[in-house]
Design a protein around this nucleic acid. Structure first.
Lengths: 206, 206, 206, 206
DNA sequence: CATGAATGAGCTTTCATTCAT
DNA sequence: TATGAATGAAAGCTCATTCAT
């Protein structure tokens, strides 16, 4: 009889179910544009009921479809961020650090093409600015500080602000990844890593 | 017994009305994400009825909301393409041609920030690949041939295919434009044109 | 500049056009149900513009579609009433008068099957009660008085009120006509007049 | 890529809701003509949402408004057919059988004036021919066979085909019922049953 | 938890009707 | 008058979201 108005307690959530739902959602969001996806499709793909989706993603500020997309995105990006920090450990030179960043991202999309397709098909570029996780924030701040240090050290071009350098770096990285997926080419992007990063390095250094 | 569906005669279109609708639509699509926009909002902004929207954009393969967005996009990009061809006339060196292209795009978004915001907020990156006008096709082919010639002439880096060079160029250009709008900085991007293009040129040349 | 709010002056109406429109409307209303008919269909069938329909039938209490149907109906029924009065002239016995009425109606629908089909397809029975012309009123009053006199004279059954007698008469007459059209039988109803009226006469007399 | 349309499962139907909707619809269709009725009116009267109407009556060949009207009609007529068969049980003479039929119909409209008004206001006579349920078919066949037997037995007039006899019978019955409702007389029609049926019997017998 | 019915919002279409030319 | 564009109303449908069981 008594209403339980409390938010969904974490205890009622099964991480395995969450995993399964998000995996299914990524597949669906990767195949059609966000607003052509129905929650039914996702529920079917995740072999669960609509209600389960609402239970896991429903009590947010946003509707659960957007909440679900955000969750998929954050989850993927957290993985990327984690992997990135892991791979950066022990690398000290500017060039090697940036080169590594470049490689880790290309490699990530090579391994998770569905995640890439989802970003292309279902995430507006405008979202990239606002909707971020702590992990990404930290990563971005880390990058910025590296770039800034590089400028201070007289290695990187300091005629532009460090965020512009970051745009340069990300712009190329993401465009390359995106077009690779859109064109449906076979091969791995990471294989082109050397030559592409050389170009980028020429651009960013003095 | 009788036909009920007949082709819509072309004559039913008043260019001024079309103009007004698309202008209004750009404002609305620039302010909210595509799937948060209602046709009512656009109709109100264009001071016309819903039915008028359907008259102008309704008999397409896609629903009229998508058709309307496409129309806005195409219209804007056609303007850009036209302006581009206009500005390229009489410029012969590779460097100057690419520099001009870079400048024209930055200048375009400086002049039409709403068009840029619309692209950021309401166009999925995946659309950029498929949904193109003849004008854009032509422009892209032109770029590609210029890049290819540059490679043949031994001026541009030929370690990567010309489409990759194009991705490099576009990636930086669009990311810069997009982030400028997202960050809401005052100033014109075109003012940074020189230093940015220098970086890009270093990357793309041998 | 000055508005002419006056009702459409008769002078601007061409009886030939009216005739053509109503003839066309009867064909269309006979073929589909009222609410499946569009004014476009009628305009096309009458080879005139929509506006002409509104000019001729638009300034009524009802919308012009209903007004047009009413006009067709009234026009047809006025013809019937006229023909009826014409044929009744000079007939004096009750039996012959009623027999003649019966015959004139059967003959009317034999000659104007489209009018009959229109009534079946596009006129709700409820309309028959309310929406009447002076001609019909007069005709009905005439019938009622004949029936009443027949009762007074001891010839017609006076165990029921005269309107009931009229219902009896009309009920059979209209049902027979209607089913003949619905069944799409060839032949003329009027050919069965004798035997049918004999039955009716047996019912209505003492 | 994915199916978006799936068959509506039968289970989605609550008979009580169906009942409530149809009861409300009869009231509304009885009060205004079919094409002046909006589904909103019916939804309000049935205290449900528009979408519920579409859920229950929407996946038909016809639009849901017509489907709803048909359902109301069929439902009512099935009741009538059932009651008729019930009342006919154990009656053997032709006269009594026909008399009973006459009475059951008059009594039905006395008890369900709204059903009668709905038929008058919202059903085109042309529909009576085509749009029938198995129950009505059976009833009509039963009547026809009774009439035919009567003719064979030398009791009923065999100068006309049995369907014509049926038209005679129905024509009077329905016209009487209809005009009673239109005139809004108080009293019950069934009270006039005796004298009316006597008239009819005189007409139909040899 | 899962199922499925109910609801509200919004897209899309058709048509009667009106207005400007 | 005729033409065609504009509008409002309502049908018809899909889907996110909620509620009861």
């Amino acid at each position: 009889m008594q209403k339980t108005t409390e938010a969904v307690p974490m205890s009622r959530q099964d991480p395995a179910v969450r995993e399964r739902i998000e995996w299914a959602a990524v597949q669906v969001f990767a195949d059609s544009e966000f607003h052509h996806v129905t929650l039914q499709q996702i529920a079917r793909a995740a072999r669960c009921s609509l209600q389960t989706l609402y239970r896991y993603y429903g009590d947010d500020a946003q509707g659960s479809k957007e909440a679900l997309l955000s969750a998929c995105l954050h989850h993927g990006l957290e993985q990327l961020a984690e992997r990135m920090l892991d791979h950066l450990a022990g690398i000290d030179t500017f060039r090697d650090r940036l080169s590594k960043v470049f490689w880790v991202v290309l490699d990530f999309f090579d391994r998770n093409p569905q995640m890439g397709r989802m970003m292309i098909n279902s995430v507006y570029p405008g979202r990239w600015g606002s909707d971020t996780t702590p992990g990404q924030q930290r990563l971005t701040e880390l990058f910025l500080s590296v770039l800034h240090e590089g400028q201070e050290a007289g290695i990187l071009n300091d005629q532009v602000a460090s965020p512009i350098l970051l745009d340069f770096f990300y712009g190329v990285l993401l465009r390359i990844s995106q077009m690779h997926l859109l064109r449906g080419r076979p091969g791995r992007m990471a294989d082109q890593h050397g030559v592409l990063f050389d170009m980028l390095w020429r651009a960013m250094t003095v």
